[in-house]
Nucleic acid binder design. Structure first.
Length: 270
DNA sequence: ATGCACTCCTGAACGC
DNA sequence: TGCGTTCAGGAGTGCA
């Protein structure tokens, strides 16, 4: 379940393998991911040299010397892994350089790939409406307070809305709200600026710590190297239903918000 | 304009 | 043992 820290980990793992390398072959084995892959994707990438690998929210961006950018989203189960020998059932794309072949594997096919001109990549419909990067300078406490202002949606839904702040998913929304001591069902517009300021800091601290740990590995995420992230061992709330809150000892509760599990401590989060 | 349910997909975990 | 059911969830879509 790749969220921002997992995608950041993948991007960092791709750099040593692809940066500066010529893509001698890019083979599409299965084009029906979340959306059909662009028919010219393989042709546009084959023979190009990778000049930069970046991240925006939960998207990875691979730039080439042909002024193209490959935008990828890992969906739920996407990963890149070195591929030696026969590709597997779910290896949908193969990227070959002098250093070997990298497979994009995605059993559930919720992931997607797009190829656009680098100059207009940020205007792509998937990227244009995204809110600020939570670890960037544009995401300030004032920005979070402004996006919560007047909103009658639960604070957790606001964090999941990529237009308010980009890159947070279910896990880190739960963890950041725990760290800030805010109940996930509380209406965003009714939370005081002081508490939103605390939430702003919690978001940044939680994401930074998760990146430091190589992300969280539940079922699906793995680094490009195959190493697992280990931030899941530090979860305070996510996935801990019935287990004691690490702060007060009360059992962590689970409820469903907008079809997703929310984990929280009713005593510590108000 | 805003909030919400629904939808895509597969594999793992669970229950009988 | 084996089968069926449930769950995981990012984010676009369409509805109220």
């Amino acid at each position: 379940m790749p969220e921002l820290p997992e995608v950041e980990t993948v991007v960092r793992g791709l750099r040593p393998l692809l940066l500066g390398q010529c893509l001698t072959a890019v083979i599409v084995r299965r084009p029906d991911l979340r959306w059909p892959l662009p028919p010219d994707l393989g042709q546009r990438l084959t023979g190009a040299t990778v000049t930069a690998i970046r991240r925006r929210a939960k998207y990875g961006l691979i730039e080439t010397d042909r002024d193209d950018t490959l935008i990828f989203h890992l969906g739920m189960s996407g990963k890149f892994r070195p591929c030696e020998g026969e590709p597997g059932l779910h290896d949908h794309l193969l990227f070959t350089t002098r250093r070997g072949t990298l497979a994009y594997t995605d059993p559930r096919r919720f992931g997607s790939m797009h190829i656009v001109a680098t100059a207009s990549a940020s205007q792509h419909p998937l990227l244009a409406a995204l809110g600020p990067e939570p670890l960037g300078d544009a995401f300030t406490a004032a920005a979070l307070i402004a996006s919560a202002h007047g909103r009658r949606t639960p604070i957790k839904a606001l964090l999941l809305d990529q237009k308010s702040v980009a890159g947070i998913g279910n896990i880190y929304a739960c963890e950041a709200l725990f760290a800030a001591g805010i109940n996930p069902v509380r209406m965003a517009g009714a939370i005081s600026p002081a508490r939103l300021t605390r939430l702003h800091e919690a978001i940044r601290a939680t994401l930074a710590a998760a990146i430091e740990a190589g992300g969280s590995t539940l079922r699906d995420h793995a680094q490009v190297s195959g190493d697992l992230g280990y931030f899941q061992h530090r979860f305070q709330s996510y996935g801990r239903e019935g287990e004691p809150c690490r702060a007060c000892g009360d059992p962590i509760r689970r409820r469903v918000q907008a079809g997703r599990s929310t984990f929280y401590c009713a005593r510590c989060q108000r």
